[in-house]
């Protein structure tokens, strides 16, 4: 059983300081001079950001400051919003994701996403995880597909809980399990980057602790960008933190540094609870 399921949740809130050092320092995702417009309204102003591989970066800031907007730029989810226009350059492994030759489908395979509200498909647990590999043709046989599903569910820490009921609907799971199912679904297509938009805001504290621990484990294989409105969460799971305010990226750096010695006054005000 997971050690974080204890009813007090004390362990869960402990800082995992041993994981604070990034394992690899090469940059995987970078944003340069990114401006985003929704029609006439500008949502992001000149954002510059470098994400290192195998690390967790959290985006914090008051509601409406453009965190989700930036996140959705990374896998071009903003394409589906007709009014949304993204300027500047975003590079994944050195390739411009807005290049005409880029296939959005492969981009989204490389950059997966987990949403605020758990949104499993109204299909079986198995189908939920198998859907991505199926449409990307990642499994050559049903045997291979089953292996991918099991591996993904194991990585998401859900296998033991659902292995006997893979045919049951994914929507019948608890909120926390549903969110881990969504994470399993995202990692089933072997992404490099996983974007998470407030993945715990609809979960109770115990489920939150489990997902947080999972994020920490996933760092070994993936690069994670997480939007969160909880500063404690940012401190617990991330190595880098970016603070946003009114569409500007105010500060970006080591999480410890941001929370202990913020350089900007606005960051200081936000983490001490004066703006939010």
């Amino acid at each position: 059983m997971n050690k974080y399921t204890n009813p007090n949740g004390e362990l869960a809130l402990k800082k995992r300081s041993i994981n604070k050092q990034p394992m690899d320092n090469h940059s995987i995702l970078s944003a340069k001079n990114v401006d985003v417009f929704y029609g006439e309204k500008q949502a992001l102003f000149d954002v510059n950001l470098e994400l290192t591989a195998n690390s967790v970066t959290s985006l914090i800031g008051p509601s409406g400051c453009g965190k989700s907007t930036l996140l959705r730029c990374f896998n071009r989810m903003n394409d589906v919003i007709s009014t949304c226009k993204v300027m500047g350059s975003i590079k994944l492994d050195g390739q411009d994701i807005h290049d005409k030759k880029v296939d959005v489908v492969s981009l989204r395979q490389k950059v997966g996403m987990v949403f605020q509200k758990p949104n499993p498909f109204p299909k079986s647990i198995f189908e939920n995880v198998a859907y991505g590999p199926k449409i990307h043709g990642l499994a050559k046989s049903s045997r291979e597909l089953e292996e991918i599903v099991e591996k993904s569910l194991r990585r998401a820490g859900l296998w033991e809980e659902v292995k006997d009921r893979l045919e049951q609907p994914g929507t019948g799971l608890s909120g926390g399990q549903q969110q881990r199912l969504c994470i399993a679904r995202a990692i089933a297509v072997s992404p490099e980057v996983i974007l998470m938009d407030e993945p715990c805001s609809a979960l109770d504290p115990i489920a939150t602790a489990i997902v947080e621990e999972l994020i920490d484990e996933l760092r070994e294989k993936y690069t994670i960008v997480i939007v969160t409105h909880s500063m404690q969460q940012a401190a617990r799971v991330s190595q880098q933190t970016a603070f946003f305010h009114l569409g500007y990226m105010v500060e970006f750096g080591e999480t410890d540094a941001i929370f202990t010695t913020p350089k900007d006054e606005r960051t200081q005000n936000y983490i001490t609870g004066r703006i939010g």
Partner: peptide
Amino acid sequence: VPPSIREAAIGLGAS
């Protein structure tokens, strides 16, 4: 049909 279903599929790379 909830938009979250569409987002989930598009986020996975479905056309």
